[in-house]
Nucleic acid binder design. Sequence first.
DNA 1: TTATCTGCAAACGATTTGCAGTTAG
DNA 2: CTAACTGCAAATCGTTTGCAGATAA
Lengths: 163, 163
Amino acid sequence: MNKPRAHAHTHGPSHSESPEALLKQSGLKLTVARKAVLDVLLKNHGPLTIEQISKSVRSPKCDLVTVYRIIEAFKKNRLISRCDFGDGIARYEFNPADGSHHHHHVICKSCESVEPLDLCVVQSWERSLQDRGYSDLTHKLEFFGVCKACKPSTSGARHETLL
Amino acid sequence: MNKPRAHAHTHGPSHSESPEALLKQSGLKLTVARKAVLDVLLKNHGPLTIEQISKSVRSPKCDLVTVYRIIEAFKKNRLISRCDFGDGIARYEFNPADGSHHHHHVICKSCESVEPLDLCVVQSWERSLQDRGYSDLTHKLEFFGVCKACKPSTSGARHETLL
DNA sequence: TTATCTGCAAACGATTTGCAGTTAG
DNA sequence: CTAACTGCAAATCGTTTGCAGATAA
C-alpha cells in the first residue's frame, strides 16, 4: 500500500553509547548483523520500518527475517521501542539510555516526514494513573498533521494516508 | 498470537445519535449490516478488533470481509477512528460527535482490559504545533500499565504482552 | 566446543481484491 | 432500474517459524 518513504531526520550519532557497548550491556552476542542494525537505529532518528532497516544494511546484506529476529531481541532487551503510525506497519526507534530524552513525534499525513518533539506533558498523567493502582506505566503518543511543506490545498482536501 | 479478550466496558448507549441518523448524515446507504456494525460500536466503549465486531453481529451474521469494508467506509466518513495497542491488530472505536468527549485509554498489559480516560492534556500541544506550521492536527495517545487486578508479582516479572 | 545466530523456504494471520449475485433508494 | 453493497474465494502483505549450516565466546 504506502511505500514508506524515508523522510526521517538523519543526523550524526548524538548518542554516547557505542553499538558494541550497548549489545554487551544487554548480554547479546555481538554479531555483524546486530551491530549493523543497531548502527542504523543509532544514526537515524525517527522510527524505521523493518524494511527500511533491512535495506539500510548492506555489505554484507542482512536477511529480512534476520532483521525481524534482531529487532525482536532488541525490543525484549528494551534497546528499542515500537511506534505505530496507524497504517499497520511496525516502526522501531532506538531507546536512549533509561528514560533520558523521552520524546514523541509529529508525522505529516501527506509526506510522512517525522519531526521529533523533545518534551512530554503526559508523564504527570502517569503519576495519577499510579494512584489509581496502575504500575509499570508507559505510553504512546503521536501527533498527525499536514506539515508546512505540504501546505494544505486551500480547498478542504483530505489527507487520508495516515490515521 | 493474542486472542483479543473483550474486557471492554460495555454500557448502555450514552450517545444521542441513532445509527440510522448517523449513517444518513454520512451519506451512507442504510443496510442491515451497517446498522448492526454501528450498533456494536455504539454500545461498546473501547476499541474493538474487526474480529470482535464480526462476532458480535449475529442474526443475520455478517461476513468478516464485509465488516472490513464497512469499517473502511466508517473511517473514511470519520464515524470511527483506529487505535493501536502495539500488537499489530487494528482496533476501532466510535467517534463521538465532532471532538466532543475526546478521550484516551489505559490498557492493562496483562489482562488487556481497557479503561477510558476522560480528559486530554495534549490538546494544548496541538496549538503550539499549529504555530510551527502544522495543520489538520490529530493525535493518538494510549497508556499501558498493569492494572490493580493483575497486581504485579512482587518480583520484577515482566509483562510483554503489549508494547 | 557449544549455545546462539543466520539464511532460506514455507507457514501464518490480518487485511485486501475480484467477481457475481443482492439490495437500498 | 441502477449504483452501491454483500458474500465467497483467492490474493497480498507483514510477520513468524522450522531447520540446517555458520559463528561468537
